[in-house]
Simulated assay, not measured.
Amino acid sequence: MARYTGPVCKLCRREGFKLYLKGERCFSPRCSQVKRPVAPGQHGASTRKLTQYGMQLRSKQVVKRIYGVLERQFRRYFEAALKKNEETGTALMKILESRLDNIVFRMGFASSRRQARQLVNHGHVLVNGRRVNKPSFNLRVGDIVEIKEKSRSVLPIKEAAEAAKERTAYPWVEVDYETFRGTYLRYPVTEEVEIPVDLQSIIELYSK
């Protein structure tokens, strides 16, 4: 299973804004985007105007990095979205948001999607009462996600859940932090997800 294993803070610096890939660290003064708000590399501080293609490419990279997917898998998601009977950008967003690792993060059982992916890989997560260890597992509306009973005392899970209690819950999921169980209520709309790029630019990039 392919995944990015390099330094994630460099990804935020490359895009020029926070992608919130390291959980609570991204909200602290230790965040690399706060300490060094320039692109990595020898010429990171230099600026240049992007072409239309360059802006489309950056939009695609941002979405891939937010959700933690690589090119081949992202391309498959795009091709699946094309076959849906709805606007392609909306369909793509729904596919990405329905990934199990993303829902575990949205429910507050992990402080980042990266941590959520690790929890799923290690078998800490149940879907409808059955263990699922595939982070890209696609959830359906009404599915119940919970942390395995023996795993509820794991410190990172407890800390993430405690922090999530203080935040406003995402309206498309319902969570009970006493039982470490949540329900995927509905697909979110694009405005609720607040993806920091125009999805239409990604569609135009792949349509060339």
Score class of each variant (00 low, 15 high):
residue 2 A to D: 11
residue 4 Y to H: 06
residue 6 G to A: 10
residue 9 C to R: 01
residue 12 C to S: 13
residue 15 E to V: 14
residue 22 K to T: 08
residue 25 R to P: 00
residue 26 C to S: 10
residue 28 S to V: 04
residue 32 S to H: 11
residue 40 P to N: 08
residue 41 G to K: 00
residue 50 L to G: 01
residue 50 L to H: 05
residue 51 T to C: 02
residue 54 G to T: 12
residue 60 K to S: 10
residue 63 V to C: 06
residue 63 V to L: 13
residue 64 K to G: 00
residue 71 E to A: 12
residue 75 R to D: 02
residue 76 R to H: 15
residue 76 R to K: 14
residue 76 R to S: 14
residue 81 A to L: 08
residue 81 A to H: 05
residue 83 K to E: 14
residue 86 E to T: 12
residue 88 T to Y: 07
residue 89 G to H: 06
residue 93 M to L: 15
residue 94 K to D: 09
residue 104 V to D: 10
residue 105 F to W: 14
residue 108 G to P: 09
residue 109 F to L: 07
residue 110 A to L: 11
residue 112 S to L: 08
residue 112 S to D: 12
residue 113 R to G: 05
residue 113 R to H: 04
residue 120 V to E: 04
residue 121 N to P: 03
residue 123 G to R: 10
residue 131 R to Q: 13
residue 132 V to H: 04
residue 140 R to V: 04
residue 141 V to C: 07
residue 141 V to D: 09
residue 147 I to Y: 01
residue 153 S to A: 15
residue 153 S to I: 12
residue 154 V to H: 15
residue 156 P to T: 13
residue 161 A to I: 05
residue 166 E to L: 15
residue 166 E to I: 11
residue 170 Y to H: 14
residue 172 W to G: 05
residue 176 D to W: 00
residue 176 D to F: 00
residue 177 Y to Q: 04
residue 180 F to P: 01
residue 185 L to E: 11
residue 185 L to F: 05
residue 188 P to I: 00
residue 191 E to D: 09
residue 193 V to P: 10
residue 195 I to C: 13
residue 202 I to N: 04
